[in-house]
Amino acid sequence: MKAWSIGIVGLAGLVAVIAGAYSAPEALLAVACLTALGIGIGWPHFLGIPAKKTLAALIGLPGVGSAIAATYLPAPGFLDWTPSFIAAGVMAIFVMQLVRGTGQAQRLESTLGSCAGVMLSCLGAGWIAGSRFNGVREMVLVAGVSAAIALLAGLIRWPDRVVAPLGIIGAGLAGPLAGLVFSDIAVLPAALVGVAVGSVLVSFRRLVVLRGEALNFPAALGMGLAPVSAIGSLAYFIDKLLIY
């Protein structure tokens, strides 16, 4: 698959997240769980590491647990269990590598890359926390619009030195515009969310460029959903720090 397919997957994930946020809580929970499982399945393929099926479970299941906890924990501790799920996933990765034994291929890369995948999987619970925070969903929409602009910029087949500033600036401008049109969120928090989201997404684009190899569908799925998951928690904490 072409590298641009990652951006399409990311855009589809964003649409699902925003639609879930404006639907029933169970709908957003389902989206978050499917996103976590998608990262679990695809991340080992993107990294090109062995034991893909086992790692898919160890990466995806902590994200599912984190999403369920964020849905049902009382306010304001929506993400109180998320660090525990990340820790459990990381420990499971280390145990799995010990079981594989010494001398196995790509053991270090598999351990470090899988631990990063666990964190990305669990951070998707931030979308649920942002949706539940004060009962206001507008920041989810602002973050989603900013991310969509950054992803669209990433589809342009120009060098990173052009696309990266374009994506960050575009997301930084789209955030306040979405805030003014769809909500009463102040310009500064919306702009900060846009710039932060854009920076994260163009950084993930750089990872794809550095990989420089053709992607299969699971790899595109994992890499497309991973940044979408990560910016959920990012938007939530910016919302909590600057607006609450």
Results as ranks from 00 to 15, higher is better:
132 R>D: 11
72 Y>T: 12
106 Q>T: 01
140 V>L: 08
182 F>S: 15
25 P>A: 06
123 L>V: 03
72 Y>H: 10
111 T>A: 09
228 V>T: 11
16 A>I: 06
189 P>E: 00
84 S>W: 12
193 V>Y: 04
47 L>I: 02
29 L>T: 13
197 V>F: 03
173 L>Y: 13
41 I>P: 02
231 I>W: 03
25 P>H: 03
24 A>I: 10
196 A>G: 12
200 V>K: 04
125 A>R: 04
159 P>I: 10
152 L>F: 02
242 L>H: 07
53 K>L: 09
7 G>H: 13
92 A>D: 05
32 A>Y: 01
129 A>K: 07
176 P>K: 08
53 K>V: 05
42 G>H: 00
100 R>I: 08
195 V>T: 02
55 L>G: 14
100 R>P: 00
29 L>Y: 08
176 P>Y: 04
3 A>I: 01
33 C>D: 05
155 L>C: 06
25 P>V: 01
57 A>N: 08
104 Q>D: 05
228 V>F: 12
127 W>V: 07
105 A>G: 03
236 Y>H: 06
71 T>M: 13
3 A>P: 02
89 G>H: 00
112 L>F: 09
229 S>K: 12
19 A>C: 08
173 L>G: 15
159 P>N: 11
232 G>M: 15
228 V>R: 03
177 L>C: 09
79 L>C: 13
224 G>D: 02
1 M>D: 12
42 G>W: 08
229 S>R: 09
84 S>P: 10
148 A>G: 09
186 A>D: 10
61 L>K: 05
192 L>T: 14
200 V>S: 01
104 Q>S: 05
133 F>T: 05
